[in-house]
């Protein structure tokens, strides 16, 4: 791809955050990105824009200003009730072409990771996935993007000097939202879909949200994960009780998923999800490398296992040697409720 000349690059200004909207609600990750992007915009002495493609979000726009945005660019269309990535990507790519942002950030969620690569291809720019650190190089003004690769075995810093915009997806729960400032206001720019941007190539037929049993591993502060040591689905009921106590999500090793004790979307690891919770409880999980690569970037790791020599016991900040069927009920009793 042909690099932008330095004059061409200079025409790109402002930092954009692409909002994640789900069921008409702007998601928490959006405010986290605004928090991170506010610093970037201040350093670049430019504006922070939040781009919202959704339907019926008017009443939430002020919260974007409270969270740090200077401008809210809203594309309100009934067809955006569902997540049709092709169409959203088409609009976003056009808006990027016309408004020329310098930096575009999007959540590294299943939806963000599907949407933004399409935008990057059409807009002819680089994209760094799953960033956990973002800073501005004071000399060049380039965005320095740090991300784990090889399941967290390596941290790579990526730069995109010759192309604008610089695009990145950012892991949920890594950046901090600002304390909402209800006195802040901003500008609203209303944009419309152009003919042809609704391709009709994909239609969402049905949507299932697991409200009963919220998993959301990427969003949880606490993850209570279980493995083969739980012996069966009843073991996971016990984990769920612990998770409820701390308002956390239930994770699982592949062994537990393959045994049919919990659905796949709970699986953490190389062939499951990569998570970055504040606290990770591994209960009856030995910690084979394929599991570790999915959770080793969690801040505080607790292992509970009757075998003191497992890889997870070596990695953990606190390890309890014991029978989890005794330890977990005791924990449920002792842990303060959050």
């Amino acid at each position: 791809m042909i690099a932008n000349t330095s004059e061409a690059r200079a025409a790109y200004r402002n930092v954009w955050v692409v909002a994640e909207v789900l069921g008409g609600e702007i998601q928490k990750v959006t405010y986290e990105l605004l928090g991170a992007a506010r610093h970037l915009a201040d350093t670049r002495e430019s504006e922070l824009w939040c781009v919202v493609a959704g339907h019926g979000v008017d009443s939430q726009i002020d919260t974007l200003f409270h969270g740090g945005a200077d401008v809210a660019m809203v594309i309100d269309d009934p067809s955006f009730v569902n997540f049709v990535d092709e169409d959203q990507a088409a609009v976003l790519a056009r808006l990027v072409r016309t408004h020329k942002p310098e930096i575009v950030l999007c959540g590294a969620t299943t939806r963000g990771r599907a949407l933004i690569p399409r935008v990057a291809v059409v807009a002819n720019c680089g994209l760094t996935a799953d960033c956990t650190g973002l800073t501005i190089d004071p000399e060049t003004g380039d965005l320095l993007q740090t991300r784990p690769a090889f399941g967290g075995n390596i941290m790579a810093t990526i730069r995109c000097s010759d192309h604008r915009p610089q695009m990145a997806t950012v892991r949920p729960r890594v950046m901090n939202a600002l304390e909402p400032d209800t006195t802040r206001t901003g500008r609203v720019i209303a944009e419309k879909l152009l003919p042809g941007e609704i391709s009709g190539l994909k239609t969402v037929l049905e949507l299932f949200q697991d409200v009963e049993n919220p998993v959301n591993l990427s969003d949880a502060r606490f993850i209570i994960a279980g493995g083969r040591g739980l012996k069966g689905p009843d073991g996971f009921k016990m984990l769920k009780a612990l998770a409820e106590r701390v308002n956390g999500a239930v994770g699982a090793s592949r062994a537990a998923v393959d045994s049919g004790w919990v659905p796949y979307y709970h699986q953490v690891g190389q062939t499951g999800q990569t998570v970055q919770a504040t606290v990770y409880f591994a209960c009856g999980i030995s910690g084979q490398i394929q599991h570790l690569v999915g959770m080793q970037s969690c801040d505080f790791i607790v292992a509970i296992d009757k075998n003191p020599d497992t890889p997870l016991m070596q990695l953990a900040d606190v390890s309890i040697v014991g029978d989890l069927f005794e330890v977990i009920p005791q924990l449920i009793r002792e842990l303060p409720k959050t």
Partner: peptide, 19 residues
Amino acid sequence: PTRVVQTNPPAARKNEGLR
């Protein structure tokens, strides 16, 4: 467009774990 300019091992897990 993207260039890897630096790679590091992840921040070492600080302490000896508490057993």
